[in-house]
Design a binder for these strands. Structure first.
Lengths: 244, 244
DNA sequence: CTCCAGGCTATACAGGTGTATGGGAAACGG
DNA sequence: CCGTTTCCCATACACCTGTATAGCCTGGAG
């Protein structure tokens, strides 16, 4: 959470004229838009609804952000900014897409996470960029940890990295389903580690299953590619990654 | 010309008056709606666009499906039906949420899969129901395979099953991202096993990683020890009798 | 005081949306 | 021949959308 020691909404402090100052009503509008876009989608959210939620008129929204797409772009930028600050604050390096990258996304705040979830599903430049970064991080992680199984630049590493990012991002996008089944939305801030624990459980279990003869048979039935891979090494002793 | 066989595929053969007959223009409209909903979302798709894509007028769409929500419901039902038929045809039992369940979804056809992906993200009764079935299957699978780690009805099994379904469903929802990174959309029908292979690769790699000391440390940092055991559990997930 | 820049509001407008309505065409049944 | 049913179309309507425009209010500068 960014430091925001403002008990009052600060009616009209005449902000500096130059750069985007991001305080006062402008920030209120942006936050309201974030929530509205997250809840109703880019198309479902309305300018009037956002203005009402922010306690301002529709004209002011236009005055500050021009058009609806401009407002959307501002939300994108704000969320990406928040995420980057969170990542650098947590000291995460390239391996964003371990269980850690997801945690950083969640730690950026429920509103931002919800917005990102919608943006990923709807497809926005910001969400695509973030997803690409997660995927790049995952590919680096895979290639660095298992160079024989996922050679750098190989199609197998690329596919696995994309799938990994999609799977972890999918838990974000489908947070409503998780909330329905787990009893608590993983995006509401309480117990941020619960989803991570479940994901690790899944990977451990499914990893063992995939390594079993039954799993190998399933993999074979899918038309295994050129490299079936050694199934004997179970503990490759990966190099220490960053905060997970 | 009273006695005239069918020179055209659907000459309006006066179908049976009673039940939903699903032929002629009605099916065309439904298919066009499926594609439109999948591409533009429930809100973005328009009645006029669907009618034009189906080659009919807007009035006919209303005549057959009443309202837009009725059309949406019909699409839901059709997709769910298709999926069930595919599952039973493949002889899949409870383990819907292994790599098999996802494959059945994909095998139901690109249009249905795309529609389902959108429906999962937007949230519809059909998508929720299907996701619940996948989750139930995953929970059964986890509890049956690792009874000590995922006791039946435990919170840990429930969380892991929900996460597993969300992760696999997420690859469906984020298929555009996968297409961007893998170079081919996993929902376009060609090489249906490629995504499954990537998922298995991910589970194997991440499973090994989670079992490593580094992974265990990460799991510990998330709040719970390696074996929390069954904590507060609630009523087991509702199961549908009959259809397995 | 006046002046005036800028945050802020109210209203108007053009376009698109879902839906209701009235009517036309073809296949039976008489 | 007419009547009825069903499929199908063109149009109208009320509503909501994003956006443009004109004006009000505050507060500092001259």
């Amino acid at each position: 959470m960014p430091t925001d020691p403002n008990p009052r909404p600060e009616p009209n402090p005449r902000p500096r004229p130059g750069p985007p100052d991001d305080r006062t009503a402008r920030a209120r509008i942006r936050d309201a838009a974030l929530a509205a876009f997250a809840e109703h989608g880019t198309r479902g959210a309305t300018m009037r609804g956002i203005a009402e939620a922010a306690g301002v008129s529709v004209g002011l929204v236009q005055h500050h952000f021009g058009t609806k797409d401009g407002l959307r772009a501002a939300c994108d930028e704000a969320v990406v900014d928040l995420f980057r600050r969170q990542v650098s604050a947590a000291g995460l390096g390239a391996e964003l897409s371990g269980p850690g990258g997801l945690g950083a996304l969640l730690a950026a705040g429920p509103a931002a996470a919800r917005y990102l979830a919608r943006a990923m599903a709807d497809g926005s430049a910001a969400a695509d960029g973030l997803l690409d970064e997660l995927t790049d991080g995952a590919e680096d992680f895979l290639s660095a940890t298992w160079p024989d199984r996922f050679p750098a630049g190989s199609a197998r590493a690329r596919d696995a990295a994309a799938a990994l990012a999609a799977m972890h991002g999918g838990t974000l996008v489908l947070h409503a389903h998780l909330a329905r089944r787990m009893g608590a939305d993983p995006l509401d801030g309480t117990d941020p580690g619960r989803l991570g624990r479940a994901i690790i459980d899944v990977h451990r279990a499914l990893g063992e299953f995939a390594a079993s003869p039954t799993g190998a048979a399933i993999a074979d039935s899918l038309g295994t590619g050129p490299d079936p891979g050694p199934d004997t090494d179970t503990a490759p002793a990966p190099k220490e990654p960053g905060r997970g």
